[in-house]
């Protein structure tokens, strides 16, 4: 069973990260709901985190993993503030469709 002992090239992890990032970009471009657009941004952050972890594995760098930890913290803060902004926008406009939220003025 040599299949069970087979290792995974790190390139595949990076390729998965690139694919997830691209899917996040596509979601950011085609989704028309404010919350889903925000979710696509989270997806891109996650994809970048995966390549950080892969490179930390490659160079045995602890700081790469710690950077991912900091990215997670900043993303959590960003999600809290961003969703609060979405609630405020919904209060002002009563819609979540990004095409109808095209003025900064109320």
């Amino acid at each position: 069973m040599s299949f069970l002992q087979h290792d995974v090239p790190l390139n595949w992890y990076l390729l998965l990260s690139a694919a997830l990032f691209s899917l996040g970009v596509v979601g950011f471009l085609i989704k028309r709901n404010l919350i889903t657009v925000f979710m696509s941004i989270e997806l891109m952050l996650n994809a970048v985190n995966l390549s950080f972890v892969a490179f930390a594995y490659q160079w045995h760098a602890v700081k790469g993993q710690i950077f991912v930890f900091f990215v997670m913290m900043v993303a959590a803060a960003e999600a809290a503030v961003g969703l609060a902004i979405i609630i405020a926008v919904f209060r002002a406009r009563a819609t979540l469709a990004v095409d109808r939220i095209n003025l900064m003025k109320l």
Partner: peptide, 30 residues
């Protein structure tokens, strides 16, 4: 996948912070 790459702490943090806190926040707002 983080667990496979030897990042146990990040795997747990990913589940708690992202799949837990952040996504609960998202579903809550939805």
């Amino acid at each position: 996948l983080y667990l496979l790459l030897g990042a146990e702490f990040l795997a747990i943090a990913q589940i708690i912070v992202y799949a837990g806190a952040v996504m609960v926040l998202f579903t809550f707002v939805v």
